[in-house]
Design a protein around this nucleic acid. Sequence first.
DNA 1: GCGACAG
DNA 2: ATCTTGTCGC
Length: 242
Amino acid sequence: MISPHFVSGKPALSPLELEELARLQKELAEKVVETPLPQTPRFIAGADMHLRGERAVAVAVCFELLSEPTSDEATDFLPLREVERAIAEQKVTFPYIPGFLSFREAPVIIEAVRALEQTPDLLVVDGQGRAHPRRCGLASHVGVLLDLPTIGAAKSRLYGSYREPGPNRGAWTPLVAEEEIIGAAVRTRPSARPLIVSVGHRITLLEAIRWVLRLSRYRIPEPTRWAHRYAKAAAASKDTGW
DNA sequence: GCGACAG
DNA sequence: ATCTTGTCGC
């Protein structure tokens, strides 16, 4: 006899359970603080998770900024030096449900970031921050629980609408939902799809946009680009160390 | 009822 | 995201 909550071996969530989780997201969203960074960040980290069957491997990579922005508005790429890497591994149980990604990815990602010896001044996460139906995407979820300045830099849009930004690097347009600017579509690389940038926690949208540009040589910002590469490699290899 | 839908 | 090679376009 198959329980209605188990379809093809995968646990499904009841509408009531999802409502409860949605309430939790709204509570977390109220804790998101949108204020300027206290100072130019020196240590900047990126975190990402990779799946290998049931195994979830998350990597946090911390970089040191080798030069500071020449001005507040400057968006040129700034050189970075990798200083540390941390890994975490967990068994994933929560299914992927659009709008509820954080319940699947946040636990391992948080564990990886906590494993860093050097606490970063800024964290970049591959996913939405406030650009979410309840203003609590993965980056905000992680940012609030870790209480770190965090940016959400997603490869595609989950919620809201935007006009296509101009073709040049640095061009951006606001992402709007419910009469509110919840993020921005940012051209990090000429003629490449824009990145969806939003406030995760303890940063302003304008700062988030500028930092994403300063951290991007290619379409994906270096911190998450490397976190993704390392997580993929770690998930592929048998053991946890490297 | 019909799409849309982070990773 | 994952299962997967080479290939076309900027």
